[in-house]
Design a protein around this nucleic acid. Structure first.
Lengths: 341, 341
DNA sequence: AGATAAATTGAAAGCGCTTTGGGTGTAAAA
DNA sequence: TTTTACACCCAAAGCGCTTTCAATTTATCT
């Protein structure tokens, strides 16, 4: 069923039918109703490509997902984030186009989306401190929003980020207040902007209390269960072991807990753990009483906000770049307790 | 840069340029090279929508992700599965279009993709035992492949599934061989086909040894850490507690381990656990020695195969429906040991 | 009633590509 | 030399929609 057929059924021109369906005022209310009625009965929806060709808009947003060395987005937060943006796209009539490419093809993927003009804008994931994708997108004049920030980018751009620095500063303070002084940091890869900022928060909280950070208590890598486990295991085996851990993800925190319990210690009593918690739908941090004391910030909500921000930017191209900084909640759970000698 | 401009630069007709770029034989090798060269220099890629309109093919595959009551796909396996299919799409020049919709809108989402003809085919996720989406897609004459199976569907269709029944039968046998007889099943929602089949495997293994299954040892729900924890906690508190658990997902298994250790027991020694392991990139089951004894089957590989299967089906529409049944590996880890009184 | 304005509707162009159905020129065959 | 074949290239139609511009009808005003 296409416009032509539909208009023949109705005995109207394609023009009028198109107008009726798209809410233009030059069509009488009576015919509009009739058109909508018959369109529904015949299960008509305009062909997406034809409409796009005619309007010059794609009604689609691109998400480029690199795989290979950097796995960051093929990761636990991915599903929840997509569910957030996707909800907005569905509501606003946009498609979500995902390009999964090997890491070295990522820049080309953006060039391609632009050249084939298959999207109206893109969402940038997992920004690095120096992120070459940002100048590229600016060159391509492709609207974009960033989930996170790129510290060394000087021109303005639209972003939404969690205040990672303050979250980890508060988490560190929380542990310091409990009497812990040897606090380990199990971080994500520090070329990632968020990991760098978390480290900053951790280091600054320590130094404000006159504690110089101990590099041997700081590790950074991809945030797997295994990484958490092995890091904690090694540190706990030392003569002077840390009494608390700060983890960049729930998955890591599971690994840390495994190492703690394997050693016959009890999390919360003997060793404290604070983790960042992205509030994932399938990884609930306990039901009533949280398992982990955590900095919590919903990645799904971030997706919703970012999508709305991007669609606004597409509709109003020369509005100033929006930015939004979310504060994570620090929620107390069972994984922390006062320092014991 | 579009075809018209490019052909003007080259001093050729649009026809010839199009043919040169698309590998048609009616163009001399010399001009083909020249065209490709200039096209690359000018960073030309054909407009996706115009090409789609002209060819009648979308060069895109749809994935409909329901959210709301059934969260199954906004879940830990999602990222890895997408990374599998996405790799194939990228290689073959297909786009991946994702529709995130609330559960009750799912059927409409498929109708829409079809009516707007924005995809050439779809991948069906998380099939139910009676899945209304399958007859719908057949009605719409939309090519599709199913990740899993729908037990009560009688007409042939293309699918790829893990042999869930045999995997859980073998896992149960493994535990029985170790002397366990009170084995709990922590399953996914049993309206989901895979969960139903896993239960079948579990029950049949038990009955072959003359053990009638105990409904109080079987639970089914969404596979969260919390669900695993609470189920195991409750069962372990009984007078006659199970000595082994069979878990439908690593996430659940983490929760089961938590309950075990919280009770002061040791996983592997006091209580055994076998889990299904989807071989997720961020949830490695230990590095050298697996943490959990597990039925392992890579969900990423499943994605790759399914995507290839679907593209074949699109290219050769009247070929018979392909099907593929993968056997999961049963790998021995540290989470199982002989039954102790 | 006649003139003017407003409300409706249509014809046709155009979005950027592919593809059909010719053309033209050169080499091989008659 | 003329014919036939082939290699190479092009004009134009058409994919299904939106939108400009123009035409028609109906309502409003002297």
């Amino acid at each position: 069923m296409n416009l032509k057929e539909l208009s023949e059924i109705l005995g109207l021109s394609q023009t009028t039918v198109s107008r009726a369906l798209n809410g233009y005022p030059e069509v009488s209310e009576a015919t509009r109703l009739r058109v909508q009625q018959i369109a529904r009965e015949n299960n008509y929806s305009p062909n997406a490509r034809a409409r796009g060709l005619a309007t010059g808009r794609a009604s689609a947003i691109g998400h480029v997902i690199p795989i290979g060395l950097r796995h960051e987005m093929v990761n636990p937060i991915f599903g929840d984030f997509i569910s957030g943006v996707g909800e907005v796209y569905a509501r606003e009539g946009f498609d979500l186009i995902m390009s999964v490419v090997s890491g070295d093809e990522e820049m080309n993927a953006y060039r391609n989306l632009s050249a084939r003009s298959s999207v109206d804008g893109v969402v940038l994931h997992a920004p690095l401190m120096n992120d070459p994708r940002i100048p590229l997108l600016r060159d391509l004049e492709m609207p974009f929003v960033v989930h996170g920030r790129a510290s060394n980018e000087e021109h303005p751009y639209a972003w939404l980020d969690v205040n990672n620095t303050s979250a980890f500063r508060r988490a560190t303070d929380f542990l310091l207040d409990l009497g812990h002084t040897r606090i380990a940091l199990i971080n994500g890869l520090e070329t990632m902007d968020f990991a760098y900022r978390r480290r900053e928060g951790y280091v600054s909280a320590l130094s404000e209390r006159g504690i110089t950070f101990d590099p041997s208590l700081m590790r950074a890598d991809e945030m797997t269960e295994d990484f958490g486990y092995h890091s904690a295991k090694e540190m706990l085996a030392r003569d002077v072991a840390p009494s608390a851990f700060l983890s960049a993800s729930m998955i890591c925190a599971f690994g840390i807990r495994r190492a703690i319990e394997e050693r016959g210690l009890k999390m919360g009593a003997d060793v404290s753990v604070v983790t960042f918690d992205d509030d994932l739908s399938y990884l609930a941090n306990g039901q009533n009483v949280p398992i982990f004391t955590a900095c919590r910030s919903s990645v799904r909500t971030a997706g919703v906000r970012l999508a709305e921000m991007l669609l606004r930017q597409i509709n109003i191209p020369d509005a100033p770049h929006e930015t939004e900084l979310l504060e994570a909640e620090l929620i107390a759970g069972q994984s922390t307790g006062p320092y014991k000698d």
